[in-house]
Nucleic acid binder design. Structure first.
Lengths: 343, 343
DNA sequence: TTGGTAGGGTTAAACGTTTAAGTTAATGTT
DNA sequence: AACATTAACTTAAACGTTTAACCCTACCAA
């Protein structure tokens, strides 16, 4: 192996030119003669110098081609959640096309301070649970985009959650239904439970609360008041939380005949539990989801849900960041009627 | 906002001490008096200096706390594959515990050269399709770990794929069976097809070929020779490729009654197709998978497969990298008998 | 001849730290 | 009193680039 890492200086000495010239050979070809440039590149090739050191470049140029993706939860959770991982897919594809690198940043970490100095920007997916982190993001001065939540003056990507929820609920709810809601992160509790009188957490205009508003509005239009007793809180869109909530809903009496779920994962788990108990969907129980994940397509009966394109979100976020877009964008959603409601 | 980013120098000037002292206040508390240190930290707090610039630290210290995870395929694919994303989960959890950051590196990128200077090490998951990339990984001098493939003298994490495949095949195959194999990345083709006489690609002791060896050995013990005509190649462990392969297998005559699949995704898709066609599993068709993903648990009948813990792999890889482990590790696997074979 | 311009370089000052080596004064030791 | 040790700093040289500013020579126009 080489004794020590080669530097611009080594090449410069060997060729009897200044380091600036070598640097220009790599970065600004117009600054030197074609002949000299080729000579330099040939020499680099020969001795195995593979270009200017990136760490030094980052310091000097103040840019690294690294974009941090700040996730609301742990990377572990995000990567296994179909919605989040699809989002990451969109982001990574776009970044890669532009030659950028992706640094995954867990939202349950303490502080972005240890990366802020060397990343080129932030894409923040989902409102951080960690208040300090949210503050830092707002305070820091590099380009940033928020997705599925908002910070004043920071460009963002969202869908119209309130209307999306309203529409799917409107399609599902009939007069005299008993309506329950399986919600996501509505209150500050680490376990699945009914919300009763717990104070709702509503940080950074949480998408969950926008959805809740939509559901409630649709219900009201049918003259239905949804009591807090019929609203469940799940700490995460996770199968085991969903399973438990499903059980509670299906066991309660009177049993609701319409359940509005804030994610497809939750809805699918409920559907599964209901079918296992011999409940007729949709005649005894109507179910709606949210997100439009692939798996929902494979379920029988097909899930009624709101499709949002997480890939598009990811692409939009990356593009907005790279292009310096500063407006807040609202992406479209798509109501998908399946057989888990009566048509 | 601040006019310009604060530096050590600013703090030093304001307090009338040297920059070295400020630096020590952050990095080596034993090098200055307690009082001075507190004074410095207080001043930093007051003026909003949040610690030494990381970009400069990377250059000076030669370490960044960033670990690159080099994936065999695109990030997009990897993040949606249950096996790969579970692996990422294991890696990220471990790295985060140790205060390291995770840079996702797509294996279909050109070169690691643009990150090699500032990352602390590499975890390489799956043999890169890109030959140049594999070379670079081998040549580069930072710590590296390979997972699910091998490079000479580079520590690695693997399972015993040959025996794992042997065992699951042995459990499935009976005398006089017609055995087919749905393999992964066996030949150099972008589409699903039978391998016939195509030359097998066998880079870096590909896990697929180890598995193939295991299957073939188990079949031989039952006096069964598996003709290349009965071996399919899939370019990726993807549902749509799997669906097509499933169709071909189930349509072929004579129809195989035992199909060994190199991933659970493939196996599940086959199972699904078979059931849809009214084929009795396992009496008319026995199926085995590979990996032991969560979804296989939810399938009915339960899939017979080989469980390997991708989380454990990820943790092992991260730990090995961080601890400087230099041996090659073989992790255990676990045969899981389900109802997709006859017991 | 004078002056202007362009091409192809060089010089040296950053970028913001860390750290080995040196200095000084105070404390302890014999 | 002489010397060794230690605590608490400071000095200054890296780390490996990039880039503004400068310098020279050749060429051209008038």
């Amino acid at each position: 192996m080489k004794k020590t890492k080669l530097t611009l200086k080594d090449v410069a000495q060997q060729l009897g030119v200044s380091t600036a010239t070598i640097s220009n050979a790599f970065n600004r070809p117009d600054q030197l003669s074609k002949g000299k440039r080729e000579e330099i590149l040939a020499q680099c090739e020969r001795i195995g110098y593979s270009g200017p050191n990136k760490a030094a470049q980052i310091l000097r140029k103040g840019t690294s081609n690294i974009v941090a993706l700040v996730l609301a939860d742990s990377i572990a959770y995000m990567v296994s959640d179909p919605v989040a991982s699809t989002f990451i897919k969109g982001v990574s594809t776009t970044l890669q096309q532009q030659g950028k690198h992706l640094l995954l940043y867990a939202g349950d970490s303490n502080s972005i301070l240890d990366v802020v100095d060397f990343v080129d920007g932030f894409i923040c997916y989902g409102a951080p649970r960690n208040y300090k982190l949210a503050q830092e993001i707002a305070a820091q001065s590099k380009p940033a985009i928020t997705v599925d939540f908002d910070i004043d003056d920071v460009p963002s990507i969202n869908i119209d959650n309130e209307n999306a929820a309203y529409e799917v609920a409107k399609a599902a709810i009939d007069e005299n239904d008993i309506v329950a809601i399986l919600g996501l992160r509505l209150i500050d509790s680490p376990t699945t439970c009914r919300i009763y009188d717990s104070p709702l957490i509503d940080v950074n205009s949480s998408i969950s609360h926008r959805r809740l508003d939509g559901y409630v509005r649709a219900a009201k239009e049918q003259g239905i008041e949804i009591n807090n007793e019929w609203i469940w809180h799940l700490p995460e869109s996770d199968r085991s939380y969903a399973r438990q909530a499903a059980k509670e809903v299906l066991m309660s009496s009177p049993r609701p005949n319409t359940v509005l779920c804030m994610s497809d994962i939750i809805a699918l788990e409920l559907l599964h539990s209901a079918l296992a108990m011999g409940i007729d969907v949709p005649n005894e129980l109507k179910i709606t989801g949210f997100d439009g994940i692939e798996e929902a397509d494979r379920a029988r009966p097909h899930l009624t849900t709101v499709c949002q394109s997480s890939v598009a979100k990811g692409e939009a976020a990356a593009n907005a960041l790279l292009s310096g877009e500063s407006r807040k964008q609202i992406l479209p959603f798509d109501l998908k009627l399946g057989e888990t409601i009566r048509s």
